[in-house]
């Protein structure tokens, strides 16, 4: 190392790393692994399991509605931490409850609060309230998986992007990056 960047392309940096290969640590027994692999790759199993998830939709929808109530209460007392927690629960459950638009809107609210918080700013009440109202309406709608629900989710996503672009997110590094679900 003669004054060069130790991590420049083509150059080795001396870090001691021990690599432990499969087979030298406990893994699934071969017979189990083969059987499990067959079952996991069996389209019939996947179809059966997908039906199981679909059968739970009504139960999960009730759970989402309970979280919507807690979300509204958290907003009423201006507890932004609790707002995030409830929105997070909703985005986790809504997709499996057949409430895709609700999940997207809740995800947008989580994204907004997360990035704002990491930037050391306070969330705008109007942005939070707009999301809250949209989540409540979508979750209570008979058929929220309509173009209207998606349109609202799209519009709110644009609003979040606009608001986040107005704050200095450069200090938060990759805070604004999200992976695709």
């Amino acid at each position: 190392m003669t004054g060069q960047n130790p991590s420049s392309p083509g150059q080795k940096k001396s870090t001691t790393a021990t690599k432990i290969a499969p087979g030298t640590y406990p893994t699934f027994a071969t017979a189990d692994a083969m059987r499990l692999s067959r079952v996991l790759r069996d389209p019939e199993t996947t179809t059966k399991a997908a039906r199981v998830i679909a059968d739970k939709a009504d139960e999960l929808r009730m759970a989402v509605l309970a979280h919507v109530g807690r979300l509204e209460e958290a907003a009423r007392i201006s507890d932004i931490g609790a707002v995030f927690e409830q929105a997070h629960e909703i985005r986790g459950l809504a997709g499996n409850a057949g409430l895709a638009a609700t999940g997207r809107i809740a995800n947008g609210l989580c994204k907004y609060i997360d990035v704002i918080d990491r930037a050391g700013c306070k969330p705008e009440r109007s942005v939070v309230v707009l999301h809250l109202e949209a989540i409540a309406r979508a979750a209570h709608a008979e058929d929220e998986a309509t173009r209207l629900g998606d349109t609202v989710a799209d519009e709110l996503a644009l609003l979040v992007e606009k608001r986040l672009s107005e704050i200095n997110v450069s200090a938060t590094g990759k805070a604004g990056e999200f992976i695709a679900p």
Binding site: R41, T46, R91, G95, P181
Partner: peptide, 14 residues
């Protein structure tokens, strides 16, 4: 990432 789908979970397990 949620929502969970049987296909995605089983692919990870496979």
């Amino acid at each position: 990432a949620k929502p969970i789908t049987a296909q995605n979970l089983f692919l990870r397990l496979a």
